[in-house]
Design a protein around this nucleic acid. Sequence first.
DNA 1: CCAAAAGTGTTATCGATACACCCATGT
DNA 2: ACATGGGTGTATCGATAACACTTTTGG
Lengths: 254, 254
Amino acid sequence: MTNIHMSPPPSAPLPYNPHVSVDCVVFGFDGERLKILLIERTISEVNGNYSDKKLPGSIIYQDEDLDTAATRVLNELTGLKNIFLHQFHSFGDPQRTGNPRDRNWLEKTTKMKIGRIVTVGYLALIKISRKIIFESENTTARWYDIESLGTMKLAFDHNSIAEEALRYIRHQVMLQPYMLFELLPRKFTMTQLRNLYDLILETKSDVRNFQKKVLLIEGLEQLDEVQKNVPYRAPRLYRFNKKKATKERNKHGF
Amino acid sequence: MTNIHMSPPPSAPLPYNPHVSVDCVVFGFDGERLKILLIERTISEVNGNYSDKKLPGSIIYQDEDLDTAATRVLNELTGLKNIFLHQFHSFGDPQRTGNPRDRNWLEKTTKMKIGRIVTVGYLALIKISRKIIFESENTTARWYDIESLGTMKLAFDHNSIAEEALRYIRHQVMLQPYMLFELLPRKFTMTQLRNLYDLILETKSDVRNFQKKVLLIEGLEQLDEVQKNVPYRAPRLYRFNKKKATKERNKHGF
DNA sequence: CCAAAAGTGTTATCGATACACCCATGT
DNA sequence: ACATGGGTGTATCGATAACACTTTTGG
């Protein structure tokens, strides 16, 4: 396919270095929908400015581990530390930086000649209530509805990366639902938890069965507190106490 | 991906490219134990030759995708095509190539100045009966017992990569046992399958329950054939028919 | 008193586990 | 005939799934 180049085996590989970057797929949950954090990218072209979106990411620095680079990217972008972060897949199609628009943008922003970039994908989960810096000197970030990914053409292969991240989070939540607590407010209701669960897994859980199941999670604590200012019966609040959580999940994921 | 957005914290990132490689953790099963395919590495030093082992791997070529590079590595090493291959994790600790012995070897074999290598780990499963080329011009490969990994110091961070691969295959087999068929001969007995399963998951399955469970796998066919030349009642043979297998696994992994 | 969502238990079904004896073959 | 591993069924238990009415609150 993109492999014109099949000579090497006999001869030595070319002394060729791609760049290496990390890209972060950051998810949030607004109580209704799954959100993804994207960065505005504006490219000036002959016939005016062109604007689209991209995942937050960066070429790794010289003495930086991959996890460190991802942590840095998120910290620079949001001002936050201690963000839940999992490496999920690496992407190395030689053509992933092949779009002239992307190459053009890369050279302008990095002031480097960029041949090719291998990128390592990270999943990041953050509580959407955390106040993050959406506007900074060079970037504008915003939460977008996951649904809108289908109709948005992101930079590079970022659409595929985001899709892969979605598959990954589904898989993980099925096995270890405690990931969900990273997306919920510190105190949350059972309904919020269930909605998020069903949203990600595309299921419709039975209210009672869900409650029974989820109350078995170690570290999930019912509070003596209810949600305020609701125009109906106030729901109880719960909290997830990481310290009391066992890392061992039981065979059903809890 | 690249985000020069933020005023790059204190100093700007150096225009720095690590090399990118793939490393393959190749497992086999000899009927008794899990095996890993390692390559002999000999380094001439002032006080004689030093010899150890490494994972098969290679720096990626210029126009090569990651999967393609892994496929190439395995093909060059074994002469085989169509090897089961899954990317599982990338490793980018700046110090992973920090050992002087490793640096030295890298420069000699690649004839390049190598600063740093980010590597993408692949899990490969092969039927141990396939005749592979163990000796070629530059490499000697051999199957080693998985157990012996604990006492062998591999090159670079290859011990950690192999451990991570083991964790990965355990996880995968728990969810999608059909991976096991990649390790078994085309025709195999129920006992072989169970032994392999228990070996990887470190469990002891009940013979009858295992049989019941496993016979639900779509694509697993009982043959009208038994194993020959056994000094006891000849066991039935089974075969896994990929074409009849559904990609959808049921909730218990089958 | 109406609307909206919260909260709560029991039964049925299904899958997982535990368990022991006879069978076929080669020596 | 014996040693070795192969092959088979049932009963119990626990987990998941299905299912509907009453409660609380604000407007």
